[in-house]
Nucleic acid binder design. Structure first.
Lengths: 180, 180
DNA sequence: TCGATATTTCAGAAAAGCCTGAAAGTTCGA
DNA sequence: TCGAACTTTCAGGCTTTTCTGAAATATCGA
């Protein structure tokens, strides 16, 4: 049991620091890692104690994770308490992350790129021409990423990438290793 | 000419703020955007004036961009000056970004995930079991991303994704739009 | 090797972003 | 509707990250 707690602590810490690479605040990533390590849904109080953070931070982290679709809130009948449960279907989790990032990053970028290209097309001179060509290449790339994301969000990409197969196979492997 | 400068300013600003989503400091992203907007390689002094940042910041941004393989430094014979040129082949740029992120993020994560899974496999109890299964699913996913990245780094992915075709087509489109 | 011209480094300032904690808001049973 | 239990909000403090500017270092021609 001590080892499980050790692994949990290390996992929470690493996951939290990795969040930085993905624009996710440390506390938010830590809460997600913590929930992933729990077999049962947890109340806010358990998270506060387990991670040593404030009540407010837990609430904000939970809200953000809900926005990302990575955590579900369950309300217990006969109580005012909310229980938080991590989304463990990674296919769903990734789909939600892709959707959110697409909306936050690519969609606005794409719109502005197109406007700028139009504007530069009206200019004369080698400088404007070169600049416009480069923006055009970026636009094409982002546009491609955008349609790949669309395709993935529709579920068409999953089979191509073999995601389901791999994840399922990992689950089997894990079960086998653990023994009876 | 005024419009070109306007577009440049807006592009630099947006690119700089978008950098945050990718773990790239604003000043670094701004320098890259600036260089993309210039037809010719630029000296440090031009960047300092164009972006209104300090000499030291330009030097640090240039170093980081070089690490990412996004900027090349050219030394002019008969002078001590360094000229900075943006990598405009997006295939190369993305390859470099993927390689760097893989090394910084996935490789360490994968190693630790495997160690944790081993450790949890020795534990008994439903809690450890569930936790281990979830880590196993994450490991499978990261492992898949890792091998996709490897495949992309070897160049095999480019055709599959049609990247080259799309980028080239965008260039043609851009040229057509601009007229003679 | 020297001096002139550039670049790089880095300690400290500035900015940005995150978390805390208390107050306000919400929900539920009675 | 009321009070208790719980959650959410947000201004302010704090940590982390980023930028500045001057000193140190490097490079080139002579």
């Amino acid at each position: 049991m001590g080892r499980t707690a050790d692994v949990r602590r290390d996992f929470v810490e690493l996951w939290g620091s990795l969040g930085g690479y993905w624009g996710i605040p440390p506390a938010t990533a830590r809460v997600y890692a913590w929930l992933l390590s729990q077999a049962e849904p947890c109340g806010a109080e358990a998270i506060v104690e387990g991670l040593g953070m404030s009540r407010g931070a837990v609430s904000m982290a939970a809200r953000e994770l809900r926005d990302w679709g990575l955590v579900h809130v369950e309300r217990v009948p006969g109580s005012r308490q909310a229980l938080y449960r991590a989304e463990t279907d990674l296919e769903v989790a990734i789909r939600n992350i892709v959707r959110t990032r697409k909306r936050r990053e690519w969609d606005p970028l794409l719109a502005r790129l197109r406007a700028w290209i139009e504007e530069l097309a009206r200019e004369r001179g080698a400088e404007a021409e070169t600049f416009r060509e480069r923006l055009g290449a970026i636009e094409a790339l982002v546009g491609m990423a955008d349609s790949m994301a669309d395709s993935f969000l529709k579920g068409g990409m999953v089979q191509k990438l073999g995601l389901k197969v791999l994840v399922a196979s990992a689950r089997r492997q894990g079960r086998r290793r653990s023994g009876p």
